[in-house]
Every structure is written in structure tokens, then in C-alpha cells.
Design a protein around this nucleic acid. Sequence first.
RNA 1: GGCCUCGUAGUACAAUGGAUAGUAUGUAGGUUUCCGGAGCCUAAGAUGCAGGUUCGAUUCCUGCCGAGGCCA
Length: 614
Amino acid sequence: MNVIERIQEGVVEAVKALYDADITPDQITINNTRKEFEGDYTVVVFPFTRAARKKPEQIGEEMGNFLLEEVDELVGFNVIKGFLNLVVSDAYWRRFLLETATGDTFGQSAPKAEKVMVEFSSPNTNKPLHLGHIRNILLGWSTAQILEAAGYEVVKVQIVNDRGIAICKSMLAWEKFGEGETPKSSGIKSDHFVGKYYVLFEQKFQEEYKSWQASPAGLAAYTDKAEESQDELAFFKAFKNTYFNEYSALGQEAKAMLLKWEEGDTETVNLWKKMNQWVYDGFADTYENLGVSFDKLYYESDTYLLGKDIIVKGLEDGIFYRKEDQSVWIDLEDAKLDHKLVLRSDGTSVYMTQDIGTAQLRYDDYGVDRMVYVVADEQDYHFKVLFEIMKRLGAPYADKMFHLSYGMVDLPSGKMKSREGTVVDADDLMAEVIAEAKAMAEERGNLAELSEEERQAINRQIGLAALKFFIIKVQPRKRMTFDPKESVDMQGQTGPYVQNAYVRIRSVLRKAGAADTSRAADYNTLETAEKDLIAQLFAFPAIIEEAAEQLDPSAIANYCFDLAKAYHRFYHDYSILRADTSEAIAFRIQLSTAIAQVLKKGMELLGIEMPEQM
RNA sequence: GGCCUCGUAGUACAAUGGAUAGUAUGUAGGUUUCCGGAGCCUAAGAUGCAGGUUCGAUUCCUGCCGAGGCCA
């Protein structure tokens, strides 16, 4: 049992013994003592005034004396207003550092015997990955790592949206205008290659639409269908989808292709396979470069028909109802949601149908206890509805389905819009930050003695650290502004700053060589700065648990930064290898070792690698 | 129109209902004969507005204003 748990237990006992009242540990607020006061942990005693019928100051005194008596780790206390500041013994901190924090498994929780599925990335296959995907992927990956560290068994999956009208557009454009060009012959990365044809389709379609607008048919449509106040521009913008579906020759062709695909037409299916494979090859590079992987890929082409049988069964059980037009719905008004369509009148699926079926499929595949969906916040409502439906269907995991909802990424100039060409491409972005790291290293003259290959590896680690940290440090639910200039910053609250703390320690430890650290336990003049660092290390497991529970990797990022900052300051203020006594040297080596280990482990949870030098 | 999320220094981010709201960047200044200066130190600078609950509100509740989103 650690010191915080002992304090909690002690407070419960104190309230019982002193005031004859029962409280639970979670009713106790224990904070870190603010640095202007003496002490390590602070118990807020205001909440006990009711039970005790005494002034906060008096309760603090009484409780302080009780805890001092009962909790061995405590050596003193003081009371300021309603705050009981507790002083933990140096011996405890010393022991904690040497026996626990320096251990290999520090930060890894015991197994929780619960399996979690994390779904993330889940791209469409018609275009390459962009900045929005990067936020998704980083969140998903780090959440999965954090859940593992917290003791869960984790399965990382994505569902690839490999079918539908979008990929048919790319296919059609390639067939019509590609003249046999391939990624190889063009030298273009293969997912970008497919994206190029998607864009080409949109261009050709726009051209067709423009000329139709000027034609008699187009003008007639405007005259007949435009609303009164609508000018031509607004009308044709709003009319685009209708035009695609009902008038466009290209639209007809694309839709015909989708139909042929659905019928299993060999030629179409082969084309589809070929182009999707190009995309997968390209994605694989991007994922590898980002340092992420998946345990299982689900494909929409396999799952898009799932769920219908569940709907039919639910209809029999009265969970769903059928309207006169034969469409099937669910009434969720008593859950403060709406009526929701789950099967169209012609019997075809909607997204919800598919998601119901896919959830069940995953459960059948893995027997997971919980599911985490990493999906942007524009789908908040969708997931509320999905989870509510799963509850009513009696899915055993329904109470443990979570939507890790995150805000969209904006640019300083506003929203990313593919139509306006402001989308930041994932591959370009990574290349840019790595180039920036390289430029920075050259400017400093670092790494000159290394081989080209080693330098490249380090620049990659630094560049990606800057990018990843910049994105992960923001709480998921918040919309964030991505300033490309700031994302490559390497000073201040950044990934490279944390890496630098690690590199410093590694450098010191290399110089220390195989120094004898056996005397560390005899170091008995613990400085406040040292104690604070140990207390920060102490918090690591709890931070991980909290981040796992909240599905919030930003907590880890901020923790790592705070620890790195505290170490940088300590390093500046104190000598390590030139400390006054051999005990101090030994102790500080151990302290530095533990901090390096925690920084590495913490950043690893975010998918950020630590270089040995930079 | 209904519902959801978010409003904190110039900018970007923190703060399980707890003490004098933390950090970074930018700005101004300082810092290297010594373990790595991608560092360290100093200064100025913020809770959208109005109520409510509470011993205590950036945090919870209500209304308004603003940004974004979802559903027709």
C-alpha cells in the first residue's frame, strides 16, 4: 500500500474515531501541497465540518495528530485554514525511489482481466491520409498503449471504408483517363496516385456540370426549381448532388459501376481490388512511418450487409417497429433521443445497421468486454444512438461502449477544406517536420560524428516527436488549431524538449559508467528539489490509470513535460556526478535513471521514441 | 427550429468543487572557464456576460452572447 492509500485509510479511521462518522476514501480530497507551504500532501478538511461540528482549523489539528500517530510514513503536519498539510518522511521517498521507481515494470499496472477493443483511423480508400487522420491515429494508438499499461488486454482495429461511390469515382476516372498509368510508371506514392484520380473525377465532373449549367436544360432547371431568393450560384451549389444523381453522365457511369460491383461483376471487382491494393500499400507506408499498427482490419465490403438479421430479430422482440412504408425504426425518445431509421423501406441498410452488425461481429471474434471508437465529434449523436440501441438489444458489452470523441483540427486560416486545397497531407507533414529537425541539427552542428543513417533516424524521431506531442497535448474533445509553424517548434512545451531531458540524462549516465550506486540508500540529506522529483515519479502510475479511465492521452503528455521541466531545473541547480558526497552522487544517478525510464515509458505511451542523443 | 460540444494572457495549451488560476510561445532583460544552452532565471500579461448553489466556482445549475457540430 502506498502513502496516498495509507493517508486515505488514515483519514477514514480518523473521522470514525474522532467524530464517529463514516466516509469512503473517494470522499477525501488529497492534493499535492502547494509549494509555498511545508508538506507533501494536503487533505482538505472542509468537508468534515458537518460531521465534526467543529472549526476547520481544529479538525485539521486533531486529524493531523491522529494521522501522525497512525501512518508511519508521516513525520509532521501543519494546518492552514481548512488545509491539513502532511509531511512524508525522507526515508519513505528514498525507499520508494530505490525500490520501486527504478524498477523495470514501474508504471505497468497488474492485469485487469478485461479485453478492450480500440477502433481508430478507419479511412476511406479513395484519398490519402491527412492531418485529421493523424489526430485520430495518434489518439487511438496512444489510448491503446495507455490501456495496456493500465492492465487491459487491447485489440487495435480499424474498419476500412473500401466500398461505395467514392472509390468508384477513382476507378472510373482511372479507367476513362488513366491510359494504363500505374503508381510505378508515374512514380507517385500509390495512395496518392488513387487520390489523384479521385480529384480528376471531381474536376471532370465540375467541367461537365459547368457546361450543363449554361445549357438550356440547366437554365430550365434553375428557372423551375430555384427558390425565390436564390441566385444562380447558390442554386447550382445546392443542386450539385441532385445533378450528380439524376442528370450527370459521369454520375450515371459511377453509379453503374457501383451496381456492377454489388452484383459481383468480375471485371469491376478486379479493378476495385487493384486500386484498393494501391491504396493499402500507400497507407501501410504512412502507418509505418507514423509508427502504428493494427491487430485486425475490418473491411466495409465484408460488413456492409451485416446487422439486418439483428434488426429482424429485434423487430420480433418489439425493440424496433415497422412503418407503413415497411421501413424499420426505433423509438428512443425516452432516452432523450429521437426516432431512428435502421432499415430502409426497400430493405437496404443504413450506417447504423452496419454498425450494429459490426459490433456483434467483433464481439463474436474477440469476446471483448469494452469497445472504444475513436471518431470525430461530428458523430457524437450517431454513437449515442448506437450505444442506446445496443443496450436495448441486450448486448453484454453495451454498457462499456465508448466514443472517444475528438474535435476537428483547424488551420490558422480556418477549416481544412479539400475543395479549397487546404487539406494538410499526412505524408507531406511528416516529411516537413523531419526536414525541420534535420535543419535544426545542422544549424547546431549536432550529430556531426554520426553516420548519415544514424542522423536520419534521430531526425525522424525528433521531427515526429514535435508533431505528435503538439497534437496529443491537447485534450481530445477540444477542437484544436494546428499551426504548421508551431508544430515544428522544438523549444518550450514540445516533444523535443522532453527528449532533450532524456538525452541529457543518458549523457550523464554514460559518463557515470558503471559507477557504484550501492551507497544511494545512505544518502540522508534529501533536498526539496529531489523530494519533489520523487513525488512526481510517484504519481506516474496514477496518471496512467486516470488517463486510461478518461481515455485522455493529453494527461500523459502534460505529465511528461512537467517532469522534464522539473528535471531540467534540477540539473541546472545541482551537480550530479560532481556532487559533494559519494552518497549524493549515487543517489542522484539513481534518481536520474528513474526519471529517464519514466520519461521514456511515458512518451512511448504516446508513440514517441526517445533518441540517445540529439 | 431542436439537441450536443467548446469559450482561460496577443497566440497555443493546463488546472478530480479547494489555498495567491499553472505552463509554453511571443515581448523586454539576464545567464555558458564546470555533468549537453533544443537548457536555466527575471518581468509584464487571462477565467465571454449576468445570475444561482456552496465555507469555497475556471469547474456544477439557469439565462444571454460568441465559435463549431449533429438532426431535419
